[in-house]
């Protein structure tokens, strides 16, 4: 198996810093922002993104949470039973907020579809945006990301692996694929 390291730890930090600026630019400041990470690796990424935003806008009241989407997935009958994760919202919820969903890899778009359905049950945000560390293409649904760390053209047979210190002990993004 061929493994290609495409992002290093510093690359990830720079990408998140840029995405934080983009989020603030588009939102015209930090008002009403709620950052929600999708388990597993979206959660630490959301934490880092919230930190980066707070670093730029020190007055921002950090609104960070996590959104497990298992209950709304469309592949529950196809895969082994998945453990449920936690849903944790900031104290003020998502009502009329600008929610930024954070995930590690955007691929088929089905996780984000489930996340949008999950959000519907929790309140009515003013807007929902999507931030992903890696967009690897091969979408199966009409979904796109608003903030992308890196666009990675991949073949469907390849696998994108994201490593984060909080979960895996190190930072990095690699593509695994069959030998050329």
């Amino acid at each position: 198996m061929a493994v290609r390291e495409v992002l290093t730890g510093p690359d990830i930090s720079r990408a998140l810093q840029r995405m934080a600026h983009q989020i603030l630019e588009r939102n015209r400041g930090p008002d009403g922002l709620v950052i929600l990470g999708i388990p597993t690796r979206g959660v630490p990424l959301a934490g880092r993104l919230a930190n980066a935003i707070a670093g730029i806008e020190p007055d921002w009241q950090v609104a960070l949470g996590q959104l497990d989407v298992t209950m709304h997935r469309d592949d529950l009958a196809r895969l082994p039973t998945r453990p449920l994760g936690e849903i944790a919202l900031p104290a003020d919820g998502v009502e009329d907020a600008t929610v930024v969903l954070v995930d590690d890899v955007l691929y088929s778009g089905r996780t984000i579809r489930a996340a949008l359905d999950t959000l519907t049950g929790l309140g009515r945000p003013r807007a929902v945006r999507l931030a992903v560390l890696v967009d690897r293409g091969h979408r199966q649904l009409p979904i796109r990301a608003d903030y992308v760390g890196k666009n990675l053209p991949t073949a469907a047979a390849e696998r994108v692996r994201v490593f984060l210190t909080e979960v895996d002990g190190r930072d990095g993004v690699a593509i695994e694929g069959p030998e050329q």
Binding site: M71, H72, P83, L84, G121
Partner: peptide
């Protein structure tokens, strides 16, 4: 633990999940 997570969904306005 799962039951606690399902219980949390029962306090919402929309209690029904498509699971």
């Amino acid at each position: 633990d799962d039951a606690e997570r399902w219980a949390a969904t029962q306090g919402r306005e929309i209690k029904k999940m498509p699971t």
